[in-house]
């Protein structure tokens, strides 16, 4: 059940507000969810029962909820998450309320909230105009504002270059980390996605949010149209109605191939439409991860 729809999120100005709203939606969803207690890397809370070790009591939770919870923290102790946001020119496309980049930054911000709230280390890597803006992973509460400020400053530019991002991450992540990629994956370099997914072979945990606009998925154009590339000088004048079916076939094949590759590389994959409810998308992602963990 969508908690906050995209149109409502779009009315909120700035990544910080949007991300918080989405995060709260997620938390609200978590409380309502049958998978209560699950999170990214979450160590679940268990209500205290006689016999549990007292040293594992979560005093903060006790302070907050006035109940005793035992915290299971064997998986979270050294979690380092790097949120990779593709800010190429194509991510600036919008036909709905939010552009793909706005959706990517909002999702990344909400996830940052969740991570930092759990005292996990969250970092950021933004690819824009062929350059990387990195924020190293930290678990401090004040680090969240750094992450959100960085996300807020992102503007779409330049081509999508997933292999470069893969190389950059491989160099910058000496330890095992969780890599979450927000991108439309529109990179025409052969094996671009495979390159970034190969981080998985370096023991990194990889998850992909493929963010696409409804117009990209449905191609609702009828008239003769001059299509312009958002990353380079390519252009094509064509009667959109005539190529619609062929376009949808091509795109369908691309999405199927992407899904298949992620499944093959054991990577979590989530397709997000920019008109989707973002908290629902995030919840779905978290549920999927929890399912994998079990």
């Amino acid at each position: 059940m969508p908690l906050l729809d995209a149109a409502t999120i779009a009315k909120l100005a700035g990544v910080k507000v949007r991300a918080r709203a989405v995060m709260e939606g997620v938390l609200s969803g978590l409380h309502k969810s049958p998978h209560q207690g699950q999170s990214v890397e979450f160590s679940e809370h268990k209500e205290y029962a006689p016999g549990d070790e007292l040293r594992h009591l979560d005093w903060k939770a006790y302070a907050k909820f006035d109940r005793f919870y035992v915290k299971r923290f064997e998986h979270e102790t050294d979690l380092r998450a790097v949120l990779v946001v593709d800010a190429s020119g194509s991510m600036g496309y919008r036909s709905a309320a939010l552009s793909k980049l706005e959706v990517a930054t909002t999702l990344a911000g909400a996830l940052s909230y969740l991570l930092v709230r759990q005292q996990d280390a969250a970092g950021l890597s933004v690819l824009s105009g062929g350059r990387f803006a990195d924020v190293p992973p930290r678990a401090a509460a004040g680090h969240l504002m750094t992450l959100l400020s960085t996300l807020e400053a992102v503007v779409p530019a330049g081509p999508t270059n997933l292999p470069a991002a893969a190389d950059h991450l491989a160099e910058g992540l000496p330890r095992r980390a969780m890599v979450v990629l927000f991108s439309d994956l529109f990179d025409e370099t052969p094996d671009a996605l495979r390159r970034i997914l190969q981080l998985r072979s370096r023991k990194h945990d990889v998850a992909v949010f493929q963010i696409l606009d409804p117009a990209e998925l449905e191609f609702p154009f009828d008239d003769p149209t001059l299509f312009l590339s958002m990353e380079d000088e390519r252009r094509l004048e064509v009667n959109a109605r005539e190529i619609r079916e062929s376009y949808l076939e091509e795109l369908g094949a691309f999405l199927a191939q992407t899904r298949a590759l992620c499944a093959e590389m054991d990577v979590d994959y989530q397709l997000v439409r920019t008109d989707d409810s973002l908290d629902a998308a995030l919840l779905q992602f978290l549920a999927k991860r929890q399912g994998r963990r079990r």
Partner: peptide
């Protein structure tokens, strides 16, 4: 024709 920047060109 109507010019239209399009990501999935």
């Amino acid at each position: 024709p109507k010019p239209r920047p399009f990501a999935a060109i």
